[in-house]
Simulated assay, not measured.
Amino acid sequence: MKKKLYIIGAGTGSEDFLTQRALKLMKTCDVIYSTAHRFLSGSKRKVIECSVTEMPQLIETSRGQNIALLVSGDTGFFSIAGSLSEKLENTVDIEVICGISSLQYFCSKTGNSYENIKVVSLHGREKSILGLISYNPKVFVLTGGENKAHSICKSLSEHGLTEIKAIVGENLSMPEERIVMGTVEELSGYTFGNLAVMLLENPDYVNYYIPLVDEDFQRGEVPMTKEEVRAVTLAKLAIEPCDTVFDIGAGTGSVAIEMARRAFDGSVYAIEKNPEALELISKNRVKLGAYNVKVVSGTAPDIFEGLPVPDKAFIGGSSGNMADIVRHLTEVNPGIHIVANAITLESLNAAINSFEENGFDAEVVCINSSVSKKVGGYHMMNANNPVYIITGKSL
């Protein structure tokens, strides 16, 4: 007969926050393991600490028929319960027992509702929350590893988000529990350990569903992609929330900032060589709250080295390097999706040839738009220059 394994969400670590169901089951178990440090440390129950990698062997060699495994928080909230269940499903009969998450405990402790909070785990992960905090009023963060709470506060401050409000909870439900409030700039001077969570609040967050119009951007003398062309270009790019996107020849940053709203859980790299344009991108980024836009000074494709691998790329200006840009992009990511805009027939031809030489089927759309202008009691239509939108589709 197979052994029985109960994977139990142990809440924040104190026995007071175990459910009655969990406590009753633990009384019937022959052995209790824990994958988290200090769980039930004040209890009379004998709990054996172990690592996740040890579990299959421990279960196989255990003399007990009924086994409990305590995992942190709730089994359905960024938990190892799912991966453990997959590894052990052919070895034992598994029953998963839900627990209380750190989100539930922390929000009740601080008097916050969590129904509209965006949740992210940075524990042991390489991920930026600049987009999430730009486009959400509240973000709950599981911290740890390199991404401790004070490090996240420092990073947000360095990117210009100094006034974001933060509440940090450390060692929740333990005797040494600590809850601290302040701006991220203030809390960057603190030191927090691995067992910490934080709630960030941005009263000036951006609603990324609202489209931008040309008048929203500072322009100067730098050319800008018109809003009608941006709309079609963005539709062709088909950006997803977690994408990493390049805007090559970013100009005023109008396309980059629109892309950043769609890649709200990702990053956009606005690549530009013109000093005036670089200054405009930085100003528009702050003005429109697009903090997940990263301004990169340089010429493509030389500047690509050191940047992350893009999922999508938009080429608004190539400085005559269209062929090299497309080749480099396809080398780092053979499955990349590329869209280019062109005004002249020569640029159109260069884009089509570059796409086809690198294994793409080039689709071309020509946008001829006119915008009304009031003249006296009449409305006159002013025509914009035709723009070619070239999409690289895999053959």
Rank of each mutant, 00 (worst) to 15 (best):
G111R: 13
N90V: 00
P56W: 07
N358G: 05
G160Q: 05
I367L: 13
G13H: 07
G289Y: 04
R230C: 06
A166K: 04
Y388W: 06
S372H: 10
L156D: 03
Y135C: 09
F39Q: 04
A342M: 15
D93E: 05
P137M: 07
I390Q: 00
V213W: 02
R219V: 15
S121R: 06
N358A: 04
N292H: 03
R178E: 13
E240K: 12
V332E: 15
N358E: 10
I179P: 12
L132N: 07
L156P: 01
S267C: 08
V255T: 14
P223L: 10
V293M: 07
R125E: 13
N368C: 07
L200M: 09
E221G: 05
I338Q: 09
N341F: 03
S101M: 05
A256H: 11
S354Y: 04
R178P: 03
G376Q: 07
V213A: 09
E115N: 08
E115L: 12
I390A: 00
I257P: 04
M55P: 11
V339E: 08
I303K: 04
N136V: 11
G249H: 05
R63D: 15
G13L: 03
G251D: 04
R125D: 06
F140H: 05
E201G: 06
L25T: 00
V213P: 00
K374S: 15
I352R: 02
E346W: 00
E272T: 03
E176K: 11
P308K: 13
L172M: 14
D16E: 15
I367R: 00
A231M: 14
S83L: 09
C107N: 11
G73S: 09
T299Q: 13
F192L: 11
K312D: 10
I248H: 01
E176L: 06
K236V: 05
K283C: 07
A256F: 09
T143V: 08
A235H: 14
I336T: 01
K294E: 14
I129L: 10
I390G: 00
G253T: 12
I94A: 00
N349H: 14
S102G: 07
L187Q: 10
I248R: 06
Q20V: 15
E227N: 08
F106K: 06
Y114L: 02
G376W: 09
I315T: 09
A260H: 10
F140A: 05
R285P: 09
A68E: 03
D247C: 02
V375D: 14
G73K: 02
P137V: 01
A256S: 15
D93F: 00
R261N: 08
S297M: 14
H337V: 04
E221C: 11
G9P: 02
S267G: 01
N382I: 14
G359C: 08
T299K: 14
K312Y: 07
R285S: 07
V197I: 14
L69C: 11
V229F: 04
A313G: 04
Y291V: 08
D204K: 13
G317F: 01
I248V: 12
N284Q: 02
F217A: 13
Y208D: 13
